[in-house]
Write a protein that binds this DNA or RNA. Structure first.
Length: 371
DNA sequence: TCTGGGGTCCTAGGACCC
DNA sequence: TCTGGGGTCCTAGGACCC
């Protein structure tokens, strides 16, 4: 989907169309209705506090403000940009709608988060261009929103291509086009090559996908390890055999929160305790709602210097109970240094078991207890 | 005044078992 | 005087993605 969160907001505030708009921050700056019926919107320059941009309109991106950028920093680049708080309920609703619209045409879909999917079109005889147009039309009718599509032989190439003609684009490509269309691109365009790997490749004199494709596989293995090195060599040729995964069980469920100001374990004990308990309650609620119990409970702390630590503990039995989670998380907390101020606290549940399958294993393990 | 919140996957060491 | 080879589970950290 194109600038998804921002585009959903523009459906609700059409008067903002054509303006630099960013979504992000905490929910403290809802638009205010004026006596004359118009709305007054918050501007980036007015924002005080922590937070990042989750999405910016293309007009805002022209000022150099992109998702992930701190709001205070983006305010320097685009002080007059309109700032809207994120409304995740609305985004989830539109996410369901666009996915359903695609599924009505092509049901083999892999979920890649709120605004992105892979679609398996292998069994369609229809030519790719008309298929892409049909899917885009269905999405537009269901949501009023545009998307960008890449149709290629595999997920790796489709992911790259869906981005080449944004917004509202269609990119078709087959293996024969890889040298001319993919090799000139920066290696960072490959999904899975992030800032760190990109920098390491740069230091090896490898900047483009083509240079990566020409690199000796043994050299890549020496620098990146067997798994990553071989993978780099493969993807640079445009090779990717991963099938579309139409369903999957979650591996972990978590809740975390960054505080408005950094807190100290001793000086802000009661405030931290309230936040900690609340995170556990919300996590327990998520587990119950999604129908899972967890055998491993973990915590995450991020200190004022942004350095993060995690601790976890595996229980004898899976649990979805808030008090049990809180106790386990409390045990984890004892194993972590607490001298430095903290900016983030999180609680995570992993080793998940679907509640529908729980009755039998729990009874069995209890039967084995000595008393 | 830096830097959200929700995830996945990989690596690596140590405990423990056969 | 010494000490294999395989496996699984647990824990911690980090890269990466949406």
């Amino acid at each position: 989907m194109d600038a998804f969160f921002a585009s959903v907001e523009l459906l609700h505030y059409p008067e903002l169309r054509g303006q630099a708009v960013v979504v992000g921050g905490r929910s403290v700056h809802q638009p205010v209705s004026q006596p004359d019926g118009s709305k007054r919107f918050a501007r980036l320059r007015d924002y005080v506090g922590r937070g990042v941009i989750t999405t910016s309109t293309y007009e805002a991106r022209a000022f150099g403000v992109f998702s992930g950028m701190g709001l205070m920093k983006s305010a320097q680049l685009a002080p007059d940009a309109v700032l809207l708080p994120a409304n995740f309920e609305a985004y989830r609703d539109y996410s369901r709608r666009f996915k359903a619209a695609v599924a009505s045409i092509a049901p083999l879909i892999e979920d890649r988060g709120i605004d992105e999917i892979y679609i398996d079109l292998s069994d369609f005889a229809e030519d790719s261009l008309s298929l892409a147009r049909r899917i885009k039309q269905a999405v537009l009718e269901a949501t009023g929103l545009t998307c960008s599509i890449g149709i290629t032989p595999n997920k790796l190439l489709s992911k790259i291509c869906s981005d080449l003609d944004k917004p509202n684009g269609i990119t078709l490509l087959d293996m024969a086009d890889v040298p001319s269309r993919i090799w000139p691109l920066p290696a960072r365009k490959i999904n899975g090559i992030g800032p760190k790997a990109g920098e390491r490749l740069d230091r090896l004199g490898i900047h483009t996908v083509g240079e990566l494709a020409a690199a000796d596989e043994e050299l890549l293995i020496r620098h990146f390890g067997r798994t990553m090195g071989s993978w780099l060599h493969q993807v640079a040729q445009g090779i990717d055999e991963r099938p579309i995964k139409t369903s999957r069980e979650p591996k972990s469920i978590s809740r975390e929160s960054t505080f408005q100001r950094d807190l100290h374990a001793r000086l802000d004990r009661s405030e931290l305790s309230t936040i900690f308990t609340d995170l556990c309650l919300r996590l327990a609620d998520d587990l119950a709602r999604k129908g899972y119990a967890a055998r491993t409970i973990g915590i995450k702390l991020r200190y004022a210097d942004f350095h993060a630590v995690t601790r976890d503990i595996t229980l004898g039995q899976p649990t979805a109970d808030a008090l049990t989670i809180r106790k386990a998380a409390g045990e984890c907390l004892k194993r972590v240094p607490l001298e430095q101020r903290i900016r983030l606290l999180g609680v995570r549940a992993s080793a998940l078991f679907p509640l529908s399958q729980m009755a039998v294993p729990v009874a069995a393990s209890q039967a084995e207890l000595p008393f």
